[in-house]
Design a protein around this nucleic acid. Structure first.
Length: 556
RNA sequence: GCGCCCGUAGCUCAGCGGAUAGAGCAAUUGACUACGGAUCAAUAGGCCGGGGGUUCAAAUCCCUCCGGGCGCACCA
C-alpha cells in the first residue's frame, strides 16, 4: 500500500467519523489535513497523522478524544495492523507486513517511472539559469546554478510540468566589444585594453582566432575588431556549451540577446525590443521624461522607476529583459522561473514589475529564485583574489558525478563554503560515493542472486517482517512525495538528501537480511521476495540519482 | 541608510508548526571462515546567534537586537 492510498483511506474514514459526530455541520477534511508522515521514531509506527490535533480546535474538542474516535474507525481499514494514539493526539499507524511489502513489486513494475507524479501537470514552465556572458569560461558560481537548475528542470518534469530549460546569451552590448578588443590586443601582442578581460584564456582564444582568420592582423581596425569579437564569441560559446554538456547539463533553448535587437525582415519592421516597449506602453506603465523612456516599476514594488531607453536613444539592458520576458510568454510559457545569483537580487523587483507591466500577474507568472554565492575557504570569489575556479578544473578534479552531487545536495539559498584541497582529494566525505555504492551493491546482490538460482518467480510480502525491511519499505514509499515536494518548493537538493537516507537504510538491511541462501540452505520464497525488495531499492536509487544528473554505476 | 539571504555538533551542512533536533567528515571503540568493509554497530559531541511574542506544540511563524554575505545606475 502506498502512502497515497493509505492517506485516501484514512481520509474516507475520518470524514465518516466526522459526519457521524456532527452531521451536516461536519467540517470537510482534505488529504492535506491528514498530514500523513513518517515518524522519526519507529516506535511511533509506520505512519503518523496529526489530523486530530489540527481539527480539535475548530471543533472545540479534546484532541485525544477526537484521535481515539478516529483510531476506532481506522482499525477497520484493510492492511492496517494497529492504530495507536500517542502524545497530545497523534494517530500512529502500523501496516501489516504484507500491505507494506506489496510496494516492492509496484516499484519494480513501474521501473524508471516510479517517483513521477502529476502534481504540476498542465503547467508550462520556462526555466532560465546560468546565462553567463559568453566572454569567458564558466566558473564555480555558474556551476552551482548549472547543477541546481538542471536538477530542478528534471524534478519539475518528473512532476508533470512541461519545462523548457533556457540559457540567455548576453551577446549584445559593450561587454562583447571589450571582449573582442581584448582578443585583438592579445593577437597583436599588446597589453589588455582598458575595461578589457584579463586571463590566459584570452591569449588562447587569440591564437585560435588567428588560426581561423590568418589575415586578422592585416585588417583595418573595425574589421579586425569585428572578426576578433565574432570568432572569439563563437569559440567561447562553444566551450561553454561543451563544458555544460560534459557536466550533464542540458539546455533546450540557447537564446541570443541579439535577436531582440535585430530589426524584423522588412523595411521599418520594429525589433522585438521596440515592440516590447509598445506593448508595455499600451498597458499604461510607460512614460517619457528627460528625453528617456521609463517604466513605472514602482507600481509593482520597485524602489525607483527604471529607464528602458536612454536619452541618447540607446536601450538599457532592461529593454532586452523586457523583450525577452515577453518572448517567453509568446512562446507559450505561462510560468517563468529565473535562477539568479545573489549578486543579481537587485533585479527581482524590476523583473516582477516587468511581469506586472506586461499585464501578467507578478505573483504567479514569474518566480525569481536567488541563490547564495559560493565562497572558497571563507573568501569570496573574485578575479582580483585569483581564486576563481573554473568548471573545467572542478570537473577534472572531481569528475562529473561527484561535482554535480556536491553542488546539488545543498539548497540554493544556503551559503556554500568549499575547500579546494578537499575537492581535489576525492575522498569519501562526498556522500555521492555512499549513495552510488549502495546502488552498485543492489546490482551486485542481484548478480549473486541470479548465480544462486534466486529469481523473482515468487513474491510474498508478508515475509518482509524484519525491522530493517519495514524501515526500507517506508523510505521507498516516500520517493514520489519527495519528488513532488522538490518540484513544488524548487528544492532539488531534497532528492539528494533522500537518496542518502535510502542508501543508509539499504546498507543496514543488507547487513541483516540475506538475499542469497547461505551454504546448503535451499532457495525459498523469502530469498525471492527479498530480491524484489533489493531490486526495488536499486530502481529508486537509480531514479533519484538520475534526477540529480548523476550516474548509477553497477560496479565501483 | 534601505532591501534580500544566512546564523543549527570541532568542520561542511540537513531539518514544507509536531513527539527524544539529524547526516557526512573528524575523534574513540567494536564487527568479515556470512551477498564487495567505498559497509555496519556503538560512544562522545548542541542555551538551534541573543531577547521578546503567537500557538496545545517554535530550529521552523512574527517583532527586535547582534554577527556574516549580497545588492541598491540613463553599467552590462
Amino acid at each position: 500500500m502506498t502512502p497515497a492510498e493509505l492517506s485516501a483511506r484514512l481520509l474516507m474514514s475520518a470524514n465518516h467519523v466526522l459526519v457521524a459526530q456532527h452531521g451536516d455541520s461536519a467540517p470537510t477534511v482534505t488529504a492535506a489535513d491528514v498530514g500523513l508522515e513518517r515518524p522519526r521514531n519507529r516506535d511511533h509506527g509506520d505512519w503518523s497523522s496529526n489530523l486530530a490535533l489540527k481539527l480539535a480546535k475548530q471543533l472545540g474538542a479534546n484532541p485525544r478524544d477526537l484521535a481515539n474516535a478516529f483510531a476506532e474507525e481506522f482499525r477497520g481499514i484493510e492492511g492496517v495492523a494497529s492504530i495507536d494514539v500517542a502524545g497530545p493526539g497523534f494517530i500512529n499507524v502500523t501496516l501489516d507486513a504484507a500491505a507494506a511489502g506489496a510496494l516492492a513489486k509496484t516499484i519494480v513494475d513501474e521501473g524508471t517511472h516510479y517517483g513521477a507524479n502529476k502534481t504540476l501537470a498542465g503547467q508550462t514552465i520556462n526555466l532560465e539559469f546560468v546565462s553567463a556572458n559568453p566572454t569567458g569560461p564558466l566558473h564555480i558560481g555558474h556551476t552551482r546554478w548549472a547543477a541546481l537548475g538542471d536538477s530542478l528542470a528534471r524534478v519539475l518534469r518528473a512532476s508533470g510540468a512541461e519545462v523548457a530549460s533556457e540559457y540567455y546569451i548576453n551577446d549584445a552590448g559593450n561587454q562583447m566589444d571589450n571582449f573582442g578588443a581584448s582578443i585583438l590586443a592579445a593577437a597583436r601582442g599588446l597589453p589588455i585594453p582598458e575595461n578589457g578581460y584579463p586571463g590566459e584564456y584570452i591569449t588562447q582564444l587569440a591564437g585560435a582566432v588567428l588560426e581561423l582568420q590568418p589575415d586578422l592582423l592585416e585588417l583595418v581596425d573595425d574589421a579586425a575588431l569585428d572578426a576578433a569579437r565574432e570568432l572569439g564569441y563563437t569559440l567561447q560559446l562553444g566551450e561553454i556549451r561543451a563544458s555544460l554538456e560534459r557536466f550533464n547539463v542540458h539546455f533546450d533553448v540557447w537564446f541570443s540577446e541579439r535577436e531582440l535587437h535585430a530589426a524584423g525582415d522588412g523595411e521599418g519592421t520594429p525589433s522585438a525590443i521596440d515592440a516590447a516597449i509598445d506593448r508595455l506602453r499600451a498597458q499604461g506603465h510607460v512614460y517619457d521624461e528627460d528625453d528617456a523612456i521609463w517604466v513605472r516599476t514602482t507600481d509593482f514594488g520597485d524602489d525607483k522607476d527604471r529607464v528602458i531607453r536612454r536619452g541618447n536613444g540607446i536601450f538599457t539592458y532592461f529593454a532586452a529583459d523586457a523583450a525577452y520576458y515577453l518572448s517567453k510568454g509568446d512562446r507559450g510559457y505561462a510560468h517563468k522561473i529565473y535562477l539568479l545569483g545573489a549578486d543579481h537580487h537587485g533585479y527581482v523587483h524590476r523583473l516582477r514589475a516587468l511581469a506586472g507591466a506586461a499585464g501578467d500577474d507578478p505573483d504567479t507568472d514569474i518566480e525569481v529564485l536567488i541563490g547564495q554565492l559560493v565562497s572558497i575557504n571563507g573568501a569570496k570569489l573574485s578575479k582580483r583574489a585569483g581564486n576563481i575556479i573554473e568548471l573545467n578544473d572542478l570537473q577534472s578534479w572531481l569528475g562529473t558525478d561527484a561535482l554535480r552531487y556536491s553542488l546539488g545536495r545543498y539548497p540554493a539559498d544556503s551559503p556554500l563554503t568549499l575547500d579546494p584541497e578537499l575537492l581535489q582529494k576525492r575522498t569519501n566525505d562526498n556522500p555521492v560515493f555512499y549513495v552510488q555504492y549502495a546502488h552498485a551493491r543492489t546490482s551486485n546482490v542481484a548478480r549473486n542472486a541470479a548465480a544462486s538460482g534466486v529469481d523473482r518467480s515468487a513474491f510474498d510480502p508478508s515475509l518482509l517482517s524484519d525491522e530493517t525491511e519495514s524501515a526500507l519499505l517506508g523510505l521507498l514509499a516516500e520517493f514520489p512525495r519527495i519528488v513532488a515536494q522538490s518540484a513544488e518548493l524548487r528544492e532539488p537538493h531534497r532528492v539528494a538528501r533522500y537518496a542518502e537516507q535510502l542508501a543508509g537504510s539499504y546498507h543496514r538491511w543488507y547487513d541483516t537480511c540475506r538475499v542469497t541462501p547461505l551454504g546448503d540452505e535451499e532457495v525459498g520464497d523469502l530469498h525471492r521476495t527479498r530480491l524484489w525488495l533489493n531490486d526495488a531499492t536499486g530502481t529508486v536509487l537509480r531514479n533519484a540519482l538520475g534526477l540529480l544528473g548523476v550516474s548509477a554505476p553497477e560496479r565501483m
